[in-house]
Design a protein around this nucleic acid. Structure first.
Length: 883
RNA sequence: GGAGGAUUAGCUCAGCGGGAGAGCGCCUGCCUUACAAGCAGGAUGUCACAAGUUCAAUCCUUGUAUCCUCCACCA
C-alpha cells in the first residue's frame, strides 16, 4: 500500500544540502568497485586566488553531468578535484594585502611571506570547495589534490630533473618578457598585446666623419642607449653604400656601425632600424646574427640602470622617453614625431606593460615534445569537441617556441638546482642537496627562482594519480577519458599537458577534449571582476537552486559556443525543476493507498504504449547527445519528454482512469506512472541531480540512492512505434478542435459536437473510436462522432482538414453566431468612430505642427490600435459567416 | 598578415540537404481538485547579402558586408 508524499512547494533549500551530505556519507562519489571499465575526469584546478565564477560553474556542471551519466552507465568512475597554487596571481594577492599594511614582501622575508600565502591559500581553498559542493559536483574528495602538495611537488621535481637529464631543460641569458611590477619573467603566451596610441619618432644619427646623418624611426627612443648598430636591408639601393660606416649615437659618445640585415622592412619608416639587442626580440636575433653586444639598460624593477647617462638613471621608461625626446629635440636630433598606434605587451596578471629583459632564465626546449603531441592528434589518441580547435592546436604546436619556466617569485615550486659557492658547480637533483657532489662543500645555495605555475599543472592528469610512483590509481585511472575546459587555456594548459604526458608516460593524458564556450553577459561582454558584470554562481543557487543553474547552463551550452546570460536566464531551469516537483506531487497524491502491480506490455492502453515509446526515443536521444558531448541536445531531450509528452499529454490523458477507473485500473495506472517517474528521474539525474534524487527516494518501490542506479536503457518490449504514430494523429485532431475553439473565442466550459470524418485509408479510425471519450474530453466536445459512413450533416459546422480526415466543429451549439456577429459589428462601428476622430487629428497639419510630439505619437498609437481591432473583428466575422 | 567563429522571431539561442524551431517576452481565453513558476490557443521570420551546385539549400561551394575571438607582427 503506497503512502508517501512531497511537501507542498518546490524549495531546493529544503533538500540540496542534505542530499549532498547523504551522497558523501554513502561514498557515492567513490569509484564503484563493481563497475566495468574505468572512466576518469580530472577537474581543471581552479586558482586558489579567487572564488569560482560562472565560467567555473559551466565547466564543472558539464563535468558533473558527464561523470554522473557515466557512473550510472556502470563505469568505475573517478572525478579528481583539486586546486592550483597560481604563482603570480596568488603572490599578487598577498602583496596587495601587504601593501595595505605599508609592507613589501621583502620586509617579511621569503619564509614568512610563504607562510602568509599558505593562509590565503587555505582560505580560498575553503571557499572553492564549498562552492563546488553547493553546485553538487560529484567529485571524489578523497582524491583531492593541490599543485603544491607533497606528491605533486615530487612530481614536479621528477619532471624537471628528467627533462634536464634528457637535455630538454637549459639555463641561459636570453631576452624574455619581464613584468616590472610582478618582478618576474613571463612566458611568451603570458603576454597580452593591446593596441595603444603611441608616437613614432624620427631621429638623426650623424655620421662619425661629419658627412651628414641618417634618420631612424623608433617608438622607444629611450632604448637608444642600448643601440649597438643601425640596420638597413642588404638590397636597399638607397643605403648600399653606407653599410659599414660609423655613426655617432646622440646623447652619448658612443660610435655604432651601419649593418645590413634582411629582416629590415624597406617600406617601413625610413628603412633604417636602430638595433637594440637587449630590448627588442627582433634586435636580439639580429644582434646574435651579427655577433653584437647586448647592452641591458634596465634594473629588475624596470627603471633605467647605470648603462645610461646619469641624468636618466632611475627613471621608468615612460618618463625617460619624455626626457630623451626633449633632449633630442633641443640638440636638433629629432626630425619629427608622428602618431603611431601599435601593439604593446601587457602582463596577463597585473596588466603592467612588459619589457623585453635580458636575464638568466631556465627554459624547456619544446620542439621534440610538440612533435609527439602532434602525432597524438594525428593518431586520434586525442579528439577535440568541437573539432575546429584541432587547427588551433596544430598551429600552436607547429610554431612552438621554447618555454621560459623560471619565475622570480617566492610562491611556487623552487627550482631544484643548487649552486656550490666554493667550486661554482651546479647540481640538479630530485632530493634536496646539502653537500656538493663535486667538492663536498656544504656551502650551497638553491636557485632562488620558482617554476612557472603551468610547470606543475601540465602534469595534473597523472601527478594527481600518484605519478611518478607506480600507484594503483595510476594503473587503473590513467589515461583519463574526458577533459572539459574553456578555450582560453588551450595553449597554457591543454597543449602542455599533452606534451608532458607523452614525454613522461608515453600516452595521451585524455582522449576527449571538450572545449566549452565562455560565459558572457547579455551585452556579449566577457564576465569580469573589473567590469563588475559577473554573476556569482552562489547567488544563482541561493535564488533558484543548484539544479536550476545546472540545467540552464547545460541547456544553453551548445558545442563550444559562448553563452550569454543574466540572472533571469536561470528561471528556465527553475521552472523545469518546479514542474518536475509538482508532477511528482500530483502522482504521489493519487497513488496514496494504491497497490503497485506488475506492468505487462499487453495490459497497457495505447496511451501507455505511446509514452513508453516516447521514453525509449528520449533515451536514445540522450545517449546519442552525450556520446558527442552535445549537452544542449540532451537537456532539450529530457525537457520536452518530461514536460510536453509526460505532463501535458500523458498525465492529462490518464486523469480519467486515475479518478474514475476501477481499483484494478487505478492500481495499474499508478504503477505505470510510478515506473515512468522512476525512469524519468534516472534519465534526468545527470542534469538535475538534487531534485531527482529527492524525488526518487520518495518513490514507492525505489531502493538506495538514485546517483548509484543504472541509467535507463531502451526496453524493446515497451516499444510500440505503430501506437506512437497513432497517438500523434489523435493529438493532431485534438489540436485542430482546440484551435477552432480558440479562434472563435469559445470559452472552455461551452461544449459542442464534433464530427471526425476519416478517409477510407486513414489508419487512425480504430484508435479514434477506441479513445473517443479521451479525445472528447481533450476537445471539450459535447459529443464526438467518428463518421465513417459520411452520414452526418455537417453543412452548418466549422470545418478543418488534416491528413487523412476532416474535422467538423458544431460551434453553433456553443455560441449564437448571429448575436456574435452583431456584437462584433457594433464593436467595429465603435472602433471606426474612434479611428475617425484620431484620423481627423492626424490629418490636421496644425495639430502635427503644434502639438507635443508625445501627443502625436499617442494618436498614432491609437490609430494603429483601432485599425488592428477593426481588422481582427472583420476576420472574426468572416470566419463566423462561413458557418 | 594568418586562422577561426557569429549573422535564424522583439531578446538569448538551437537547428547542419526535404516540415523553420525552443526558452523568455507579447496577444487571447482560462484560478480545469499537481503546478498562475501553470493550462490551452495565437502572432511575429526575404534563416545577413549575392551568385553557384542540387530534383530540393537556413544547411554545401564561392564571394561580399558587419561583428567577435585567437595567433603572428610593424622598428
Amino acid at each position: 500500500m503506497i503512502s508517501t508524499e512531497l511537501s507542498k512547494a518546490y524549495d531546493p533549500k529544503d533538500f540540496e544540502q542534505r542530499i549532498y551530505s547523504q551522497w558523501v556519507k554513502e561514498g557515492a562519489f567513490h569509484p564503484d568497485e563493481n563497475g566495468k571499465e574505468h572512466f576518469t575526469v580530472v577537474m581543471p584546478p581552479p586558482n586558489v586566488t579567487g572564488i569560482l565564477h560562472m565560467g567555473h560553474a559551466l565547466n564543472n556542471v558539464l563535468q558533473d553531468i558527464i561523470v554522473r551519466y557515466k557512473r550510472m552507465k556502470g563505469f568505475k568512475t573517478l572525478w579528481v578535484p583539486g586546486t592550483d597554487h597560481a604563482g603570480i596571481a596568488t603572490q599578487n594577492v598577498v602583496e596587495r594585502q601587504l601593501a595595505k599594511e605599508g609592507l613589501r614582501r621583502q620586509d617579511l622575508g621569503r619564509e614568512k611571506f610563504i607562510e602568509r600565502t599558505w593562509t590565503v591559500k587555505e582560505k580560498h581553498h575553503g571557499i572553492i570547495t564549498s562552492q563546488l559542493k553547493k553546485m553538487g559536483c560529484s567529485c571524489d574528495w578523497d582524491h583531492e589534490r593541490f599543485t603544491m602538495d607533497e606528491g605533486l611537488s615530487k612530481a614536479v621535481r621528477e619532471a624537471f630533473v628528467t627533462l634536464y637529464e634528457r637535455g630538454l631543460i637549459y639555463k641561459g641569458q636570453y631576452l624574455v618578457n619581464y613584468c616590472p611590477k610582478c618582478g618576474t619573467a613571463l612566458a611568451d603566451d603570458e603576454v597580452e598585446y593591446e593596441n595603444m596610441p603611441g608616437m613614432l619618432y624620427d631621429v638623426r644619427y650623424p655620421y662619425e666623419d661629419g658627412s651628414g646623418y641618417i634618420t631612424v624611426a623608433t617608438t622607444r627612443p629611450e632604448t637608444m642607449f642600448g643601440d649597438v648598430a643601425v640596420a638597413v636591408h642588404p638590397d636597399d639601393e638607397r643605403y648600399k653604400n653606407i653599410v659599414g660606416k660609423l655613426l655617432c649615437l646622440p646623447l652619448t659618445d658612443r660610435k655604432i656601425p651601419v649593418i645590413a640585415d634582411s629582416f629590415v622592412e624597406r617600406e617601413f619608416g625610413t628603412g633604417m632600424v636602430k638595433i637594440t639587442p637587449a630590448h627588442d626580440p627582433n634586435d636580439w636575433e639580429c644582434g646574435r646574427r651579427h655577433g653584437l653586444e647586448a647592452i641591458n639598460l634596465l634594473n629588475p624593477d624596470g627603471t633605467l640602470n647605470e648603462n645610461v647617462p646619469e641624468k636618466y638613471r632611475g627613471l621608468d621608461p615612460v618618463s625617460a622617453r619624455k626626457l630623451v625626446v626633449e633632449d633630442l629635440q633641443e640638440q636638433g636630433y629629432l626630425v619629427k614625431q608622428t602618431p603611431h598606434a601599435h601593439d604593446v605587451g601587457h602582463c596577463y596578471r597585473c596588466h603592467t606593460v612588459v619589457e623585453p629583459y635580458l636575464s638568466d632564465q631556465w627554459f624547456v626546449s619544446m620542439k621534440g615534445m610538440a612533435e609527439k603531441a602532434l602525432k597524438a592528434l594525428e593518431d586520434k589518441d586525442i579528439v577535440f569537441y568541437p573539432k575546429r580547435w584541432e587547427n588551433t592546436y596544430i598551429h600552436w604546436m607547429e610554431n612552438i617556441r621554447d618555454w621560459c619556466i623560471s619565475r622570480q617569485l617566492w610562491w611556487g615550486h623552487r627550482i631544484p638546482v643548487w649552486y656550490c659557492k666554493d667550486c661554482g658547480q651546479m647540481t640538479v637533483s630530485r632530493t634536496d642537496v646539502t653537500e656538493c657532489p663535486h667538492c663536498h662543500s656544504h656551502n650551497l645555495e638553491q636557485d632562488p627562482d620558482v617554476l612557472d605555475t603551468w610547470f606543475s599543472s601540465w602534469l595534473w592528469p597523472f601527478s594527481t594519480l600518484g605519478w611518478p610512483e607506480k600507484t594503483e590509481d595510476l594503473k587503473n585511472f590513467f589515461p583519463t577519458d574526458t577533459l572539459v575546459s574553456a578555450y582560453d587555456i588551450i595553449f597554457f594548459w591543454i597543449s602542455r599537458m599533452i606534451m608532458a604526458s607523452e614525454e613522461f608516460t608515453g600516452k595521451a593524458p585524455f582522449r576527449d577534449i571538450v572545449i566549452t564556450g565562455l560565459v558572457r553577459d547579455k551585452q556579449g561582454r566577457k564576465m569580469s571582476k573589473s567590469l563588475g558584470n559577473g554573476i556569482d554562481p552562489i547567488e544563482v543557487i541561493d535564488l533558484y537552486g543548484a539544479d536550476a543553474m545546472k540545467f540552464t547552463l547545460c541547456y544553453l551550452a551548445a558545442q563550444g559556443q559562448d553563452v550569454q546570460i543574466d540572472m533571469d536566464s536561470f528561471k528556465m531551469g527553475s521552472r523545469f525543476a518546479n514542474k518536475i516537483w509538482n508532477a511528482t506531487r500530483f502522482l504521489l497524491m493519487n497513488a496514496e493507498g494504491r497497490n503497485l502491480v506488475s506492468i505487462e506490455p499487453d495490459k497497457l492502453t495505447v496511451i501507455d504504449k505511446w509514452i513508453y515509446t516516447r521514453l525509449n526515443r528520449t533515451i536514445e536521444t540522450i545517449d546519442r547527445a552525450m556520446d558527442s558531448y552535445r549537452f544542449n541536445e540532451a537537456a532539450q531531450g529530457v525537457y520536452s519528454f518530461f514536460w510536453n509528452d509526460f505532463c501535458d499529454w500523458y498525465v492529462e490523458a490518464t486523469k480519467q482512469r486515475l479518478f474514475n477507473g476501477s481499483d484494478e485500473e487505478k492500481d495499474l495506472v499508478v504503477s505505470v506512472m510510478i515506473d515512468l517517474l522512476s525512469q524519468s528521474m534516472k534519465l534526468m539525474h545527470p542534469f538535475l541531480s538534487f531534485v531527482t534524487e529527492e524525488i526518487y527516494q520518495k518513490l514507492p518501490g525505489s531502493e538506495g540512492l538514485l546517483i548509484s542506479q543504472q541509467f535507463p536503457s531502451v526496453r524493446p518490449e515497451f516499444d510500440f512505434p505503430a501506437q506512437e504514430a497513432l497517438v500523434s494523429q489523435l493529438q493532431e485532431a485534438v489540436r485542430i478542435v482546440r484551435s477552432a475553439r480558440s479562434q472563435l473565442s469559445i470559452a472552455p466550459e461551452k461544449k459542442f459536437k464534433v464530427v471526425i470524418r476519416p478517409s477510407e485509408n486513414f489508419t487512425g479510425t480504430a484508435l479514434f473510436e477506441e479513445e473517443k471519450d479521451l479525445m472528447s474530453s481533450f476537445m471539450g466536445a459535447s459529443q464526438l462522432i467518428i463518421d465513417k459512413s459520411s452520414s452526418e450533416d455537417v453543412s452548418s459546422a466549422y470545418p478543418s482538414t488534416a491528413l487523412g480526415y476532416e474535422v467538423f466543429s458544431f460551434v453553433r451549439e456553443a455560441i449564437d453566431v448571429d448575436a456574435e456577429i452583431k456584437k462584433l459589428e457594433s464593436e467595429i462601428e465603435k472602433a471606426s468612430k474612434s479611428l475617425e476622430g484620431t484620423m481627423k487629428k492626424l490629418s490636421n497639419p496644425q495639430f502635427l505642427q503644434n502639438a507635443k510630439s508625445e501627443a502625436v505619437a499617442k494618436e498614432q498609437g491609437k490609430k494603429a490600435e483601432f485599425e488592428e481591432k477593426i481588422r481582427k473583428s472583420e476576420e472574426h466575422i468572416a470566419l463566423l459567416r462561413k458557418l
